[in-house]
Design a protein around this nucleic acid. Sequence first.
DNA 1: CTCGTCCAGGAAAAGGTTTGCCCGTGACTC
DNA 2: GAGTCACGGGCAAACCTTTTCCTGGACGAG
Lengths: 342, 342
Amino acid sequence: MPVTPAAPDSPPAGRARLADVAALAGVSVGTASKALNGAGRMRPETRQRVLDAVAQLGFSPNQHAQSLHTGRSWTVGLMTTDGIGRFSTPVLLGAEDALGAGKISVLLCDTRGDAIREQHHLQNLMDRRVDGIIVTGRRTDPRPPLPGVEGIPVVYALSPSTNPTDTSVVTDDRGGARLAVEHLVATGRTRIAHVTGPQHHAAARERARHTVEQLQAAALEPSTGRIHHGEWSEAWGRRATEAVLRTAPDTDAFFCGNDQIARGVTDALRERGVTVPDDMAVVGYDNWDTMALASRPPLTTIDMNLSEIGRIAALELLRAIDTEPRPGAHTVPCRLVVRESS
Amino acid sequence: MPVTPAAPDSPPAGRARLADVAALAGVSVGTASKALNGAGRMRPETRQRVLDAVAQLGFSPNQHAQSLHTGRSWTVGLMTTDGIGRFSTPVLLGAEDALGAGKISVLLCDTRGDAIREQHHLQNLMDRRVDGIIVTGRRTDPRPPLPGVEGIPVVYALSPSTNPTDTSVVTDDRGGARLAVEHLVATGRTRIAHVTGPQHHAAARERARHTVEQLQAAALEPSTGRIHHGEWSEAWGRRATEAVLRTAPDTDAFFCGNDQIARGVTDALRERGVTVPDDMAVVGYDNWDTMALASRPPLTTIDMNLSEIGRIAALELLRAIDTEPRPGAHTVPCRLVVRESS
DNA sequence: CTCGTCCAGGAAAAGGTTTGCCCGTGACTC
DNA sequence: GAGTCACGGGCAAACCTTTTCCTGGACGAG
């Protein structure tokens, strides 16, 4: 006695396949596909029958089958060079948002700054045939390009590639310094000190350089005659305050390389009885809310528009995928956020 | 004249396929596959020939084809309920790390707290046939379970599901309160105040409740006779300090619901000339380095081991995928980090 | 009435891998 | 010497969708 075969039209076991939809609509699989994708010509009534079947079965296409066929995975890799920190998070979210609008998902890869891990993740992304890769880091220093990614578009966000023919989206340190200095000058400050992070950080170096430039453009110079490099910490902000006031007691403004330093400065000033903003203006950098808002008074600061950097990186990547990459560094302007410290 | 066909064994255009490997090794595609996966029996020498061909061509299998066939995508979705913040980041990294070890990649979905967006992401994850989903939020309050995820394992991290038959991995508020109170009592404090966040946050409520319990276990009660609920901010910490010292001047320790409040307390104490830890001990919660270390003095605090929560959530998810889910809430113990404020 | 045109929809290949099943050969046993 | 067994390896189906090419029928024009 032969084994009884399953009923030919038994209810599909797991998720509905396109074949189930086609069967229900009484058309062939190919026609069902065309109905869904809008391609091919067919009677509106037929298309509607397919769409009804889709709705009834709760069908949605198997992306693996789609990707296998089309070669596109509708996925991009997001490699974070060095943990996911305060800086990379908004970048990441901006990118995710922009890509999500285009039906593209984000594969997260954290390298923890480890080259081995980076290579491993990269291989994984290639195996998954991602459509592109966004590389971001927690610092703005340039980084060596990803090795061995021929044929797949890459965009560097926040930390540009050292290769100028790669596409990078970076912050506008020059514009940030200009916004801060122009704001201070416009509000009547002339004896401006600059306290910032370690010299081996590009962010500190660049901002310092452009700060001096901007001061010169206003026929000014740093109140202490030099840049105060140190750490990105409140403690350094406090120490630097003492140093600055000892050297140049007539200083009337601090422009700080980040909000932590700025907060240290305001604390030190308050403890010395210097009132902000009346006796002294303080401007920070980063617009890191937990620092800028908790500071007393809340800090005027420069916002790098990090999520915009992520968004633009995503858009550049989409362009590179669909048409042509636009090589070079694309800068995203900063924004001055005025609060009560200036 | 007929068009010249491409040479039958022309160098493969894009990436090598298994067929190319098989051809080079002089075996069939099926055999090549078996050689790679260790399955099937074959002469070691044949297997080696295949492996050599793989190395020579730099072959790695097309994951879409694999997934299409096996139904497994080696991908899990990570849905963050409410942005990616201070709390979800370590959870996320812990999960990514644990999953990466198992060749599984993480698809990032940020819902921004929007139910529509959540549904949209969820559909996307289902279409991609993810093997499982981790849901995390930025608060510890329970959240309603993900709708319509029948047949796919879900683990909730940090914010448990309101459905007790779901698998959740949560922080141990009770243990955290116990660690803090026992530490304070062990160092001779008896007049302990508790200042924390808003009552409508589970984290504040739970920690407060267990703090009172633990004090009672030591035959103590809050120095002010009550819990001080407010905001999770430094400003509230400063205000609360005044209130506590007015009500109960003999208070000798503050246990705070988070590090921001604790930092506000230390600031207020210093400004009143109360020295920490000699006159007053202060213990925070979260071990948020930018707060705990920048505080003066650095804070003794409770670390929730967030990345461990992420790691365990990932392991529970792997278990649910491979074998059986373990329903219920799994708590991850906290850790006391002693610094100079106690 | 016949031929040509156009249109709706079907058939089938392709995309790359896994895996169950089968077969041929060489060796071993009785 | 014949039958059996085990081992190495090939064949082909299956996973699901897209897309190109093709066919049959209907309709219009001459």
